[in-house]
Simulated assay, not measured.
Amino acid sequence: MLILAIETSCDDTAAALLENDTLISNVLSSQDEIHTPFGGVVPELASRQHLKNIDPVVREALRRGKTDLEAIDLIAVTQGPGLTGSLLVGFSFARALAHVHSIPLVGVDHMSGHILSVFLNENKKQPLFPYISLVVSGGTSSIYLAESFTKFTLLGRTRDDAAGEAFDKTAKLLNLPYPGDRI
């Protein structure tokens, strides 16, 4: 199965091709330069940049994968959580592609990607289910119980500012580079 995956939950525009469990191509367009002067992501700027980036990023992922849309069996796209405008750009683009080319479309939960990302590294020992996952990403800080590849139970989350945003704000106060989590 050949899957085109599209991700626009926050400020980076990404597209990847996967054949079964193998990554064929992966293209990312970062917006760090745009948001650096503000010390954090500006949602309106992020969604506008996604509008500019999404078509070239998807085309480049297809080019690197030496394929075209006619060969795609499924389109997977982030459906949330994330910045509303950014998600709308990615989901609308993916939905239009799926409709025009008669390709099945599936929405993917952003947090599921974080929870399951531990399985992407082949060189490290992978966890056994069930396991606890701490997700600290942008506007989200949550703890999940991962019971299987498809079942996650939210155990707790922040009610105020997320740890990812706290890193950015602290870095700005200390005159350190953005994003603050890369120091």
Rank of each mutant, 00 (worst) to 15 (best):
L128C: 10
S112I: 11
A71F: 04
L134M: 00
L174A: 13
N26S: 14
R64C: 12
F119Q: 05
S9I: 05
R63A: 14
R95T: 13
Y131R: 00
P37F: 14
H114A: 07
P130T: 11
S137A: 14
D73M: 07
A96T: 15
L174P: 06
F119A: 09
A46F: 01
V58E: 01
G139C: 03
H99A: 13
S102H: 14
L28N: 11
M111V: 15
K169I: 09
F152L: 07
L18T: 05
G65T: 02
C10S: 06
A171F: 10
L45A: 08
F119N: 02
I34W: 03
T84Q: 06
D161F: 08
F38L: 01
V41I: 15
L134P: 03
Y178L: 01
S92M: 08
T170K: 13
D55W: 10
L18G: 02
P56Y: 12
P104Y: 10
A98P: 00
H99V: 04
I132D: 04
A162W: 11
F152S: 00
T158G: 13
F167Q: 08
F167P: 03
T78N: 02
A98D: 03
L145H: 09
L97W: 03
P104Q: 02
S86D: 01
H114I: 10
N53K: 13
A5H: 10
A76E: 00
N175C: 13
T78L: 01
K169S: 10
D181P: 08
R63K: 15
T67R: 06
P56W: 13
R95A: 12
D168Q: 04
G80C: 05
T67F: 07
D168W: 10
E122L: 12
V89S: 01
E122N: 14
F38Y: 15
A14N: 03
H114D: 04
L74C: 04
S142Q: 14
E19W: 11
N26P: 04
L154T: 00
A171Q: 07
V42Y: 10
G80A: 06
P104I: 04
L105N: 03
Q31K: 06
G80H: 07
A162D: 09
L74Q: 03
L28Y: 03
K125W: 01
T150A: 09
A15C: 11
L154F: 05
T170W: 03
V136N: 10
S86A: 15
G180Q: 08
V27F: 07
I183C: 11
R59P: 01
L23Q: 14
I115S: 00
S92I: 12
L154P: 04
G139I: 06
I132S: 09
L45E: 10
E7W: 11
L28C: 14
N123P: 01
Y131P: 00
F152M: 13
L4M: 01
T158P: 05
L173R: 13
S86P: 02
K66V: 00
A166F: 14
L105W: 06
L97I: 02
T158I: 07
T158M: 05
V77L: 06
V58M: 03
I3L: 02
L97E: 00
M1I: 08
